[in-house]
Amino acid sequence: MLLSSVAERVYWFARYVERVENTARMILVNNNLLLDMPRNSTLGWAPIVSITGIADKFYETHKEANERNVMRFLVMDAANQSCMLCSLAHARENLRTSRAIFPRAVWETLNDLYAYARENKSSVLTRRGRYHFMQHVIDSCHLISGKLSASMSHDQIYEFVRMGRNIERADMTSRVIDVRAENLLPKHDEELKPFDDIQWKSVLDSLAGYQMYRRYVHVRVRGTEVLRYLLQDIYFPRAIHHCFNQAEQCLRNLPMNEAPQYALVKAQRLVRNAKVENIVHANLNEFINQLQLAIIDINAELTSTYFEGKEVSPALYYSLPRELATA
């Protein structure tokens, strides 16, 4: 028996932990990239603010995005509820209320991480301190995933962990593509040209994908190929197609999965059928918007099916449309 409220907390716990890890990596990568860029480059920290999706909020209180204020905004500003400290606090709160379900060691790691982040948050304001902080956060998040995978029953509860993780990853990847690729594609400052490739590499790095890209794609880092990889690769854990596949597998192990499965299949088709060459030159923005809407839709279906505990007739329960996903 799995309470709806517990399933919801588990799902969000996983999303928040993933969000923290993603944010840390993004900061780390941007940090490295800036060190390589010419002084007068316009790149800066503004794109990172856009990735959070709440740039409006940022500019309400800040005139411009500079290293210091963006760092605060991403790491510790409560105005940004997705900031690292807030996300950690949310993850911790979700875990705290469902502690009995998780291995004790997971709680301890998250608790340690939260304490570490609170104590050392101001170290992110220097470039040196930032590196250690972010690296520690990323490692701790991996530790949490590892402990979950190694010591928790892979039952229905675990499916909600995996689901949360994969939906959050898909979401993050789509945001990174949206903001970074948009800036990198044609019609650009001629001056930036020589740095295009390192920027594309940084896009891959933000998603921990450079090494894997080189192994599997076999061509030099090029916009179209990077996009294709991040959208359609089926093996890379942060490629959207892979994330959706994983989420779909989770759903197969859950009851009453018709509506969320349908939303997922729609999203999957969108990604799989995308003609990347066309998107790159014409309508990346529109495509990403569609993708974001599809993710929102999946989340909404999960919420109404599993988290709100509405009643579903038993008949529906037994007619699971398993073929739907593979159709």
Binding site: M1, L2, L3, S4, S5, A7, Q156, L254, P255, M256, T305, Y306, E308, G309, K310, E311, V312, P314, Y317
Partner: peptide, 19 residues
């Protein structure tokens, strides 16, 4: 919030399998 009372005046809990 995990519990509700149905039309039959019985108490139910909300689970991922329904009530």
């Amino acid at each position: 919030s995990d519990l509700f009372v149905g039309d039959d005046d019985c108490v139910y809990m909300r689970t991922i399998n329904g009530r």
